[in-house]
């Protein structure tokens, strides 16, 4: 594996980007090592695309530094370290799939063989079609092929499966995994937890322009997929964080809200202590989980020893 050699694939240090008064990216610190497959998970408007566009050198951050393989993003792009697939963009007329892929691969110094790219992205059968005459899924696979055509060290995919049907989605992830298995570093963004779970070995959760959680998929899942147990406390007001499974405690509107990875054990313990009335157990949606993580990270920032990131 290549991960020991040279600078990390990606380093973000205190990166900030503002649009008018809106802080789209609000101080991101992040290091991605070579060979990792990292999912950038977050709700719409979390700052994922802005983060990715800066990483690709499409525009500079207002504050902070970004390094890609020890170089400024634009130079890393120029040196052929990067390949990328963005969300927007239509296809140009009067060019075939084969011509477009071949053109992009030849802009790199050590590209993959043309046929290998076409196979990897399952484009061989439509290689002679014009790129502006493709279905949404086919066009997306062409964009994917363009991202990896130059055999770049880091492939960046911004919501690669947005607007794809289930079948195309599965094909794309299979292709991406085949590519990651070659030892390449992959960074992709998504707002589906299951995509992050299936395809990444590390998940970075972004909300409101900040990294609110960073860990293995199982760690993130336990943080996000738990349940909330809420009740009106009777007698004691403290010590709920010591109950089994509980990861956070919040007092809100006269009720106590516990986030727990194991609601059964939590409820058993609560009932043994006879500490509540009006108990409710509810699942946590992803949006709600993001909000909770955002709150947690704010608290963590206030009390540095409890950082989650």
């Amino acid at each position: 594996m290549a991960e020991q050699h040279g600078p990390p694939a990606v380093v973000f240090k205190g990166v900030v980007k503002e649009y008018g008064n809106v802080r789209a990216v609000d101080g991101i610190d992040l290091t991605i090592h070579r060979g990792e497959t990292v999912a950038l998970l977050g709700p719409n408007g979390a700052g994922k695309s802005t983060t990715i566009n800066m990483l690709l050198g499409l525009f500079p951050p207002d504050q902070g530094q970004i390094e890609v393989f020890g170089k400024k993003p634009e130079l890393a792009m120029r040196a052929g370290h990067l390949g990328a697939m963005l969300q927007e963009g239509k296809m140009i007329p009067r060019v075939s799939v084969r011509e477009l892929v071949d053109f992009v691969r030849q802009t790199y110094r050590k590209p993959l063989p043309l046929q290998e790219i076409l196979d990897l992205a399952e484009l061989s059968k439509i290689a002679n079609r014009n790129v502006d005459r493709l279905s949404g899924g086919q066009a997306q696979r062409v964009r994917f092929a363009l991202a990896l055509a130059g055999d770049p060290d880091l492939v960046v995919l911004d919501e690669p499966t947005a607007a794809l049907d289930v079948e195309s989605r599965r094909e794309l992830w299979a292709a991406m995994q085949r590519y990651a298995e070659r030892g390449n570093t992959v960074l992709f963004s998504t707002h589906y937890l299951e995509e992050a779970d299936d395809s990444a070995d590390r998940v970075v959760v972004i909300a409101s322009g900040r990294v609110v959680a960073d860990g293995t998929t199982s760690q993130i899942k336990s943080m996000i997929e738990g349940r909330t147990v809420s009740f009106v406390p009777r007698g004691r007001q403290e010590g709920f964080d010591l109950l089994p499974g509980v990861s956070s405690v919040e007092h809100r509107g006269g009720r106590v809200h516990l986030r727990t990875s194991d609601s059964d054990s939590t409820v058993h313990a609560l009932s043994r202590a006879d500490a509540f009335t009006d108990l409710e157990v509810s699942g946590v949606g992803l949006e709600e989980a993001f909000i909770a993580l955002t709150h947690q990270s704010r608290h963590a920032a206030a009390a540095p020893e409890g950082r989650t990131t």
Partner: peptide, 17 residues
């Protein structure tokens, strides 16, 4: 027109300056 299609952006995602 190329910019409207996103083609200029696609070119910026290659080693071409």
């Amino acid at each position: 027109e190329d910019r409207a299609l996103g083609w200029l952006r696609q070119l910026r995602l290659t080693p071409l300056s």
